[in-house]
Design a protein around this nucleic acid. Structure first.
Lengths: 323, 323
DNA sequence: CCCCACGATGTTATCGTCAACATGGCGGCG
DNA sequence: CGCCGCCATGTTGACGATAACATCGTGGGG
């Protein structure tokens, strides 16, 4: 910066003012400085800037350690939206145990991030993060809890869309394959499933434990009860795995068993049969997340945040209940 | 830091020494300092540290703008491997036009990243990045070019594995659905495909243009020539889409047409039929990338880097050529 | 018994930038 | 014609750490 100032025949402070678009610089001076910057290929040192201003224009993002569709899509959406307002994400992964979360937090806060986005998939992380007061914190994908500081797709609504669709087709014997036990999203889908059964007085078949993977879906699919005609699966990859298992067992989808997934991954329309599923709009989640963060960084109080509405995409994997 | 020093009754420099694990600190002093750090919940300011040392312990990663399986998996692999050696990735996305790349580079270099990982999917970015000398640069997923500064899966080998498998099953009429035109990986797969046809004196059916998406695969699948019995698709999602199209057209897979994909996404084993595909080990790519970066940061000269070996996973989507 | 060397710690300068205050020139108004 | 005020710019002092050098005490060797 000193060199630039010398070359342009001004003080370094004037260079700083040009860099930061301050008013009250004579156009010709500004031009001279910019010329010098170009000639010297000067790039300002953000570490120094961060030190002086206390802001880094970086938002810390804590991701789960396994790259599932939802968090990954959201990350991309956040990156795009953040770029528009001049922020970039600094990524770190963490599982939900306190030590791992603690390390992630230490790292990001030490980095003087301007805000924190936590893809909190487990209730325990809320506690770990609650102590943070240095910077605004936003939870993403937590389900509907912590509503005033979070952005999420309405899990209960999504689940009910799926189940009501099946119920409307005449199905009465439901089974569910869950996501990873303990994760908020998996839990919400499961709880809503159980609540739905009770509300309609339907029989409870055993709930099958999955881990989001197609492989787990396949294994769970082998355990699906023979009487069941409607299978609600907590995400699409598991649904694909489960359908594979059902077909191996000689059950046809949707003639014998209807299957609904969750997420609407891009392949969902092209599997065989095409997968009926609940679409989650992660782009919208990312957009809202960044706009909330931006508001918080600038000290504005965000209004109430509505959960993002999911919708049902009907495809060939669901049909009328067999008589 | 000053407060910590005061509380421990030492100078700030001693605190710094404890923080950086310098030798020659009396154990009791060290303990006193660590105690003070804990009590005050002190966290060191990395911006200041970066300013003083000129190192940030952050590696810049430039990703393509669309979250495909390969780059995303590699990102996660890099994140995990980097964490082991104390680095975190700072992510930015860029398309391959010079302006977009320039902005990404400006941002990351201004951030004083210690190294740069470029998921260079297009030959043009090589030029844009070649001018960078401030920090070590590593290309990832470029295919086999720029070998001394890149890590990649051997695309030619993967493609040949797929084609030889089909050829061995008796297929002689091949068609190919490509990835996004111009991207290095897509181009390498395509070039190898064409070379293979020529080597075996096989007829050239039109090459179908895709864009990596299941949707594009479906549309291309509608165009597959009626005589063709072997379809080589540049990635798995497109293969899934193409199979869907073929089945809609009344062609059975694999009885009428055999299909091979590329990537081995986790769902590939559970689609109907299970997808024969070329497995790319992105974890290994991430591991090698980080080890090369780490070597470069510490000034060591890396040895020659072998491309990562792909392998063929045979599943139900391929079978003997129809007679 | 003195001095030196070394181990443990303190002091000062520095990294590159921004914020706050200081200066200097010029035009307008009384 | 002189003074005041503002516009454009310069000067100085943080920000929070590390690096290089300075100091102090102590034990061992001559």
């Amino acid at each position: 910066m000193h060199d630039v100032a010398a070359r342009a025949g001004v003080s370094h402070q004037t260079v700083s003012r040009v860099l930061n678009d301050f008013p009250g610089i004579r156009p010709e001076t500004r031009e001279r400085v910019q010329q010098a910057i170009r000639e010297l290929g000067y790039r300002r040192n953000m570490a120094a800037r961060a030190l002086a201003t206390g802001r880094s224009e970086v938002i810390g993002v804590i991701m789960p350690e396994v790259p599932h569709f939802g968090p990954t899509s959201t990350l991309y959406a956040i990156e795009h939206a953040a770029k528009q307002v001049g922020f970039k994400p600094l990524i770190t992964t963490a599982s939900w145990d306190p030590e791992s979360m603690g390390q992630a937090l230490d790292f990001l806060l030490g980095r003087a991030v301007d805000a924190l986005v936590v893809m909190a998939q487990h209730p325990d992380v809320l506690a770990a993060v609650d102590a943070i007061t240095d910077v605004p914190v936003l939870f993403v994908l937590t389900g509907n809890s912590h509503a005033e500081r979070s952005v999420a797709v309405d899990q209960e609504r999504g689940t009910r869309l799926a189940l009501e669709h099946l119920y409307g087709l005449g199905h009465r014997r439901f089974q569910h394959i869950t996501g990873i036990a303990g994760l908020t999203e998996a839990q919400l889908r499961r709880d809503t499933f159980v609540a739905f059964l009770d509300e309609h007085g339907l029989e409870r078949y055993p709930i099958l434990e999955g881990d989001w993977s197609a492989d787990a879906g396949y294994r769970a699919g082998l355990e699906v009860d023979d009487d069941v005609t409607a299978l609600f699966v907590a995400n699409d990859p598991m649904a694909i795995g489960a359908i594979h298992a059902l077909e191996e067992r000689g059950k046809r989808v949707p003639e014998d068993v209807s299957v609904v997934g969750f997420d609407d991954v891009p392949e969902a329309g092209y599997t065989h049969p095409g997968l009926t599923t609940v679409h989650q709009d992660f782009t919208e989640v990312g957009l809202r997340a960044v706009s909330l963060i931006f508001a918080a960084i600038n000290g504005k109080e965000p209004g109430v945040v509505e959960p993002v509405e999911p919708w049902l995409v009907e495809r060939a994997s669901t049909g009328p209940a067999p008589s």
